[in-house]
């Protein structure tokens, strides 16, 4: 009986963290919050199987030669050596991917920011309408293929039709068969579809900047809207800027589908061939799994790398 009371007393005494080792404390917290694990488990199992494992599996397979039929054979860095030294098309793909990312990423990011900033002062109904006009192309599915009809290579294409009508040219231009037009056109189309999540996030971020900050800024001598943007608005929505950057960067690497739909697979002279296409070619069609895993790993590292770089740059906003 007395023993029982003693146990009860010990239990009732609050346990401080310093009384235990770190492992004991963690274990206790884990038991206390086991509902958390149960709730996250269904999501996490699928996430682990379909997102985490594949990233590591690709990294491992990139050091092997594997065709899905025989057991993978370890070949060290051979895939990477072949990619950078023997595969001219891959070097074109890296170049095009970088051009695509460096142009569409920042341009779509700044376009999202400025359009969101411009429309922030419109009355709510008007703002909702203008938001729809700018956002709709990004969710319009395959609507971008209308550009294939605009720039169709015969005189019934709108652009050729007008250029011929007003005597700028006499023969229709083969827009998507001419290497010097394909990349710029695809970039324009990609930009048309690029005001997506980043744009919505900025619109929302601008609306929640505290009004008193602007009043205080005016007293502190902010002279014009540009100073206000740089010294007050942008620092106040820094977290949105970061999220938007992640969305824009990821998007800027994902425009392969637009190129395929407009310029064909492969595009003329591989002029708009990106890493995504190379991956699709070796992984989805030739089933060279080891080799395409190396391509996927490089693409993965490029995307994570550029995200980290931009994170560093954005920490300087407003300084």
């Amino acid at each position: 009986m007395s023993q029982n009371t003693a146990v009860k007393e010990r239990k009732a005494k609050p346990v401080a963290r310093k009384d235990m080792s770190k492992a004991q404390w963690t274990l206790k917290e884990m038991k206390k919050h086991k509902a958390g694990y149960i709730m996250i488990a269904p999501f996490f199992i699928l996430f682990f199987v379909f997102t985490v494992v594949p990233v590591f599996l690709s990294m491992i397979l990139s050091f092997t030669s594997f065709n899905l039929l025989e057991w993978p054979k370890f070949i060290g860095l051979d895939n990477y050596i072949r990619l950078f030294l023997d595969d001219d098309i891959f070097l074109t793909a890296i170049q095009n991917t970088l051009i695509f990312a460096v142009v569409t990423g920042p341009v779509s990011y700044l376009l999202s920011l400025f359009v969101a900033w411009f429309i922030n002062e419109l009355p709510p109904k008007m703002r909702a309408f203008v938001t729809l006009i700018f956002y709709a192309p990004s969710i319009a599915g395959s609507m971008y293929q209308i550009f294939g009809i605009f720039f169709s290579s015969d005189r019934y294409g709108y652009v050729n039709g007008f250029l011929i009508e007003y005597n700028f040219i006499t023969e229709p231009i083969q827009f998507f068969q001419n290497a010097s037009y394909v990349m710029p056109l695809c970039i324009v189309v990609a930009l048309w579809t690029s005001l997506g999540t980043t744009f919505l996030s900025f619109i929302a971020g601008l609306q929640i900047v505290d009004n008193s900050l602007y009043e205080a800024g005016a007293l502190d001598g902010v002279k014009n809207r540009w100073q206000e943007l740089w010294y007050i608005t942008l620092p106040a929505m820094k977290e949105q800027l970061m999220f938007g950057a992640v969305m824009s960067i990821t998007g800027s690497f994902g425009f392969g589908g637009i190129v395929t739909a407009l310029a064909g697979f492969p595009s003329v002279d591989y002029c708009a061939w990106t890493i995504m296409h190379h991956l699709e070619d070796y992984g989805g069609q030739r089933f060279e799994v080891g080799y395409s895993s190396a391509i996927a790993t490089i693409l993965f590292l490029m995307m994570i790398g550029s995200n980290m770089l931009i994170k560093k740059l954005l920490s300087k906003v407003g300084q």
């Binding site: 594949p54 990233v55 690709s58 397979l61 994902g254 991956l279 996927a296």
Partner: peptide, 12 residues
């Protein structure tokens, strides 16, 4: 996972 496109995980 928001920082890369799902193409990367396609083959695996």
């Amino acid at each position: 996972s928001l920082m890369f496109v799902s193409t990367v995980t396609g083959i695996a």
